[in-house]
């Protein structure tokens, strides 16, 4: 199954955000649930092996959009061998805000999944982007999943500087349980918080300090952002740790 959904905002004449385009493509179904807020509603099982799902998000300058999902995404193997994929490309314009806060992705046994996110940010765009991956349902060994996340910040001349490039591979028996990678954890989560409030001081060569706690860290990036990262035994603990890390990331915002 191939599905391509699209979401774009425009500035309302009286100020505020209008949903200019909201094109669902089952199983990716979009529902407006508030002003500038959209929920992804899965109208079908999966993704299943062979499915190629894509979501485009374009947040116009000065507008703000929040995307959530109604429930967790359960990635399943298909009837035929083949990868499933989910691709999200998002552009966030000048002065715009995007909050992407879906429920976790659960990797069922035997799945083979590819997740790709490409995020392009205008110089003064703000983004909060959360990803949570659960290694199988209760007591289940997960299938395979490879995620790739690319975030680029463009300056006013149009030159891009990479903010974060990150691959995560889950389901590789050699590395999953490594004390260097996930250790005993059964879930991994990260939230990128980026925007002008997190830019580094122009004169400061020294790295900003991270904040850490039990199983989580808020990591100031070299560019204008903080990556909150967490590992946990289950999805509930993961969310709790990730929210702590997100709070810490918000505290790392600089006042100018």
């Amino acid at each position: 199954m191939i599905a391509r959904a699209l979401l774009r905002t425009s500035a309302a004449p009286a100020g505020g955000t209008r949903l200019e385009t909201m094109r669902s493509d089952p199983p990716l179904t979009l529902r407006q649930t508030g002003p500038g807020r959209v929920h992804l509603v899965a109208t079908g099982a999966g993704p299943l092996g062979g499915d190629r799902l894509a979501l485009g998000v374009d947040v116009a300058p000065g507008t703000s959009l929040e995307i959530r999902s109604v429930g967790a995404t359960l990635v399943l193997p298909g009837h035929v061998p083949g990868e499933s994929s989910m691709t999200v490309h998002a552009r966030v314009g000048a002065g715009a805000t995007l909050r992407f806060l879906p429920e976790p992705t659960v990797l069922a046994a035997g799945c083979s999944h590819r997740m790709t996110v490409r995020l392009s940010l205008a110089p003064d765009a703000t983004v909060v982007w959360r990803e949570e991956i659960v290694f199988g349902r209760h007591g289940e060994r997960p299938g395979r999943c490879h995620t790739r996340f690319d975030a680029t910040v463009f300056d006013t001349t149009g030159a891009g500087r990479p903010l974060l490039r990150q691959d995560l591979v889950v389901g590789d028996g050699h590395t999953d349980g490594s004390p260097a990678v996930y250790g005993d954890a059964r879930c991994v989560g990260s939230t990128l918080v980026a925007g002008p409030e997190w830019r580094t001081q122009p004169d400061g060569k020294d790295e900003r300090r991270a904040e850490t706690g039990d199983g989580w860290a808020a990591l100031p990036l070299a560019g204008p952002g903080v990556l909150s990262s967490a590992l946990a035994a289950d999805a509930v603990e993961l969310r709790r740790r990730l929210e702590r890390a997100e709070d810490a990331a918000l505290r790392l915002a600089v006042a100018w």
Binding site: L6, T21, G93, A122, G160
Partner: peptide, 22 residues
């Protein structure tokens, strides 16, 4: 081949950075 912004019916250039700045 599944670039969701590439199939934008509004005909946007997929390489356009946010705000169309280059």
């Amino acid at each position: 081949d599944a670039d969701p912004l590439a199939v934008d019916p509004c005909g946007d250039d997929r390489r356009r950075p946010p705000g169309g700045i280059g």
